[in-house]
Every structure is written in structure tokens, then in C-alpha cells.
Nucleic acid binder design. Sequence first.
DNA 1: TGCAATTAGGACCTTGATGGTCCGGATTGC
DNA 2: GCAATCCGGACCATCAAGGTCCTAATTGCA
Lengths: 152, 152
Amino acid sequence: MLRLSKLTDYAVVVLTRLDDAAEGGVLTAPVLAGNTGLAEPTVSKVLKILAHAGLVEGRRGALGGYRLTRPLAAIPLIEVITAMDGPIALTACVDNSFGVCESESACPVRGRWDPVNEAIRRALTGISIADLAGPPAVVPHPEPAFPIFAAE
Amino acid sequence: MLRLSKLTDYAVVVLTRLDDAAEGGVLTAPVLAGNTGLAEPTVSKVLKILAHAGLVEGRRGALGGYRLTRPLAAIPLIEVITAMDGPIALTACVDNSFGVCESESACPVRGRWDPVNEAIRRALTGISIADLAGPPAVVPHPEPAFPIFAAE
DNA sequence: TGCAATTAGGACCTTGATGGTCCGGATTGC
DNA sequence: GCAATCCGGACCATCAAGGTCCTAATTGCA
């Protein structure tokens, strides 16, 4: 499906909600869980990963919480995806690790996926979380009366 | 990881090998399995899916086999990915199917993934299988002495 | 007409990653 | 000292992907 994980989706949602915090203020995981409608442990997990990637900052103790380290506009989408899902690599034999592919000599596309990854990487670098969150422009889903999408 | 399935990888390999067939000639699944180093049932599965998508054509009976319906250069990568992995949709709530997301009203990125999908789709449309298979240009993997890539 | 080769279309099982929860420890403010 | 909160990890369940196999349907040839 070429889909990214739900955690990444959650991460984007949490990040946008985290933007609601007052200047310098922090939001706790339970509060964010309430705002997003996600389960609290899940939100915690997402925040921990994001904190590890340096996208958010956690402050412990009473009055603790999380806050963004940068404005949403300064966070490219690819950074969130990389943090949550790991590096973009469409196939196993695409990174420079050899020896994993038993039919290496017979493989005609060896090392050929790199440009594809690059193309996707470029496409994802130009989009920031702010682009995803807003502006509160026209919602491209004007009340579809029935599901157009054919389930896979 | 934002990776596509192995089957898709196999599909690309099989397609490029299928290109080796003489003009109008066909290759059987066992032969292709031998050429690619993949297991025969797996190759069969891939070919069946590709045939269903109209990318290859199967001919039954003795002297049967598979052949390409188009030259590799006329097959965009995205078509293979769509055939093997299904439509490109990064998140569950991205297609026009509603009602699956319980926190729909609270979700600030609702419908916002579409441009992302579009960006990726565009990036993948410009690449053909022929681009992946060849030309037999410089291999971008000149014998790396050690793995540079940090395993996830 | 019968037989062999081959694709077509599934069913089936196994395995691994993902999603999600929980617990103990460390830190901070009151 | 106590309560609130993050931090780090372990843990388990679920589900889709990967892979194999079996039974038709079709085709060419003897």
C-alpha cells in the first residue's frame, strides 16, 4: 500500500495540537490525549519518539509537559516520517548494506531504487507540518454522500 | 519505514527479465524463476498479479508463457506499485471514505494528506521500469568495503 | 482422442512488524 | 517528603505480508 504507520499519522496530529500551547507553555500527555481523542499511552509513546528526534521537548516533574522546539512551519514532513517510521527506503536492498540479497548477481535493478527514494524524499521535504495543519483553507472533502473510493 | 512490499520489488525484477524474451516470444514462470533466482511459486504469484493489471499477458497451454504487453519504457513505476501494493494512500483517512476515524471532528489534518499523496504520485509517475532496469550505466554501488548505512 | 505443459485462481499457513498497553525509575515543584 | 510528570523499556495481541500448494482451465502435439 505504500502507507506510513499510524504512529506517524498520530505524530502529525499531536504536533499540530501541541502548537495550541501558549507561548512558552507546555502541554501534558493526558491533556494532549484529551485534545486529540487518542489513548493516553499512545500519545505518550508518540511524544517520546518525537522528543528523541528533537522535534519536541519534554519537561519532567510537576508543571511539566511537552512543547515544540520549532514552529510547525520549520518542521518538514519528512523529518516526522523519518523519526516515526525510520529512514525512507522502499526496498531492502536499497541501502548500502550488501550481502542480504542472495540473488545479487542476477538482480538487474541493483542499486536502481536510489533515484526513486530520492524523488520521494524531495517530494516530502517541501512539505511542512504547518502545510498539513492549515491554513484553515477550503476543506477538499465537501461532504461526499457516498464512498467513492473502492476498497482495495 | 515507508517501504513497499517485496512483491513489488520482485515484480520489477521479473518485468525486466521478461524483457529479455525474443520479439513475440514468451517466457514461462519456471524459466523466469531460474533467471531471477526467486522461488517458482512466488514468480507465478507476481506474474498473475501483473497479468491481472494488464502489464503482462499470459498464454496457457504447451508453448505458453508470459510476455510484456508494452515496452518497459512505457510502464511507469507507479503502475507496478499500484498493481502490487494497491493505490498509494499514506494514511487510512486519506481516501474519501469517511466514518472510519472516530475522532474526525478533532482531527486537524483531516483531508490534508492528499497533497502529500499527490506529490509522491507525481514523483513516481515520471519513472519508468526501463529507468530502473537500465541503461547499464554506472552502478552507484562501487564495492563498499563496509556498510555505511546504520541499520534502523 | 488422450496426454503433457502451462497459466488461472484460489485457499492456506507462517512469520514478522505494527499498534497498543503497562510498569518501574528519574526528575521536578510544592 | 510527596505528588505529578516525563523517560525508558518490556510486553503482548493483532493483522497483513510472504510464501507455498492444490485444483481447474486451456493449449499444442502425438
